[in-house]
Design a protein around this nucleic acid. Structure first.
Lengths: 196, 196
DNA sequence: TAGGACATGTAATGCGTTACATGATTAT
DNA sequence: ATAATCATGTAACGCATTACATGTCCTA
């Protein structure tokens, strides 16, 4: 029940929330349970799109009740567990969403950058430490992508011929490298500026 | 009234939503009316943090009722208009938020990248056109930053000595340049891959 | 036998968007 | 006269987060 009604519609023409497409997409990439999806998100899309576990399970239910996924119980011992697979309609829905991208408005949300934008209100030392923090954060991100995401993406390429997870990862790394480099440069400039 | 109560609290210790800090920050940078803030956001923070006009006016009211900003009516002819300025408490609140950044989780949301992540579900031609769209989008963003944001940021530096708007803009341009470059590279690789 | 990973939820709250609405001033 | 810009809102809705809750299985 819950929100199922929102998703239902004669021809499944209604738009779904982004989280639902993440779920559909992850099922398509081989995830079977809600937990699988949660882990996959943590290791891949997290860097440019997060969804929390709390969204995944209700979403799966809704998608099932509107026929976009098929689910069946598959308990492990006495522990309940439900596995899902994409229906043909689900596949179509996902494909439609992917192709409808022309209008995708540029969207990039980052509180860290927002804070830096207003950093003239801070003492120079605090501002510099904020820049360092941003740099560190991006370096950490690159590190994690290499350690956690890259192996998964590589496996997807080799085992299933899915190339894009790997390619998007490359963009993610490049973006964070750009942030890290810019921050390093800023740090130098700020240091000079404050000495002069 | 509306949400004023949410913001109130004995010592203004409660956290504000991010939108409120944008408002405070923009007032600090010289914006006076809600409309000023709206324009400032469109020309600057928009690239990494958007807030809509609908958030600005209620936010100003709430901030006023909790003493973080002072407002007074200043109509232009018969057209109503209200101007605001940061109070000392508001200044402190902003500063506190800016300094509390240690825990800022990495956050970057982009539907375009999300779609690209799942683009193996598309025909190669569609996938390539999506990559081109992403590239174009970043090129446009760079263009706009140079044309619209840079002059504003420069003015802030020269007229008020505020350096960070300009510096953050540099990061923004670098990020989009990285995306554009990555996409160009992807395009070539995809082309090769599909021919082979 | 205790801790960590597996597995799945509910309830409350509120932020943010979408759609709608209104009217004054200035420039063409 | 008409359009664009200035200026400020209201109402409804729903996604998404936070906090909380529960229990199983496996491994050291």
């Amino acid at each position: 029940m819950s929100r199922a009604a929102d998703y239902e519609g004669e021809e499944a023409a209604a738009e779904l929330p982004a989280a639902a497409y993440v779920v559909l997409g992850m099922l398509r990439l081989g995830a079977r349970s809600g937990y699988d999806i949660k882990r996959a998100v943590e290791r891949s899309t997290r860097f440019f799109w997060t969804i929390s576990p709390v969204q995944i399970y209700p979403s799966l239910k809704s998608l099932e009740s509107s026929g976009l996924v098929h689910g069946r119980a598959e308990p492990r011992g006495r522990r309940p567990r439900r596995v899902y697979e994409l229906s043909e309609e689900g596949e179509r829905m996902l494909g439609h969403w992917l192709r409808s991208g022309e209008s995708t408005a540029l969207e990039l949300r980052d509180v860290g950058m927002l804070k830096l934008f207003f950093a003239d209100a801070l003492e120079p030392a605090d501002a510099r430490s904020h820049v360092r923090a941003l740099k560190w954060r991006s370096e950490q991100a690159i590190d994690q992508m290499r350690r956690e995401s890259e192996p998964v993406a590589l496996a997807l390429t080799q085992e299933r011929g899915e190339r894009f997870p790997q390619l998007v990862l490359r963009i993610g790394i490049a973006v964070h490298q750009a942030v890290a480099d810019s921050c390093a440069e800023l740090e130098r400039d700020l240091w000079k500026g404050d000495r002069a």
